[in-house]
Design a binder for these strands. Sequence first.
DNA 1: ACTTAAAGTTAAATATATTTTACATGAAGC
DNA 2: GCTTCATGTAAAATATATTTAACTTTAAGT
Lengths: 71, 71
Amino acid sequence: MSALPIKNKIRELRFFAEEMTQQELAELVGVTRQTIMAIEKSKYSPTLEVAFKIAEVFGQSIDEVFQYESS
Amino acid sequence: MSALPIKNKIRELRFFAEEMTQQELAELVGVTRQTIMAIEKSKYSPTLEVAFKIAEVFGQSIDEVFQYESS
DNA sequence: ACTTAAAGTTAAATATATTTTACATGAAGC
DNA sequence: GCTTCATGTAAAATATATTTAACTTTAAGT
């Protein structure tokens, strides 16, 4: 299908937030560690709800955490 | 499961944009009319990619189109 | 009254996101 | 060398998003 154009800064944000682990982030967001892994590595596009929760954890807006490059 | 807390302003934005129809928005975004309907009525949370595309059509940020109220 | 276009709804099928489980790797500390 | 912890990977199962198709309703125009 379409190459996924959405990049993210989750990894940087995690380390910036006292080296928060994927496991910790997963628990704060309410998903599994593998889901965080997949999103962090841009394996697929998360739901808007999960994206909002991730942004909320870091106190940032979605646009600051995820970068969409239109086609 | 969890009550979906994400509201949106798609309907207002459509009428504000020269009364753009659901069908037209669907074509611009690259999804079906039913998908736009479901998202507009908050039946479920769209993928981040679709959310970005909708925001892009209206020239707004995701946070302007979708309002997440943390639990 | 008739027609048309847009919105609304529903059900079944398909695609994709998420979970669960399990195992592998690399770095750090002892 | 051994253990522990975080990360990475993968396959199968489940949940959810999206499509397809069909039908209903409502409003507007003629």
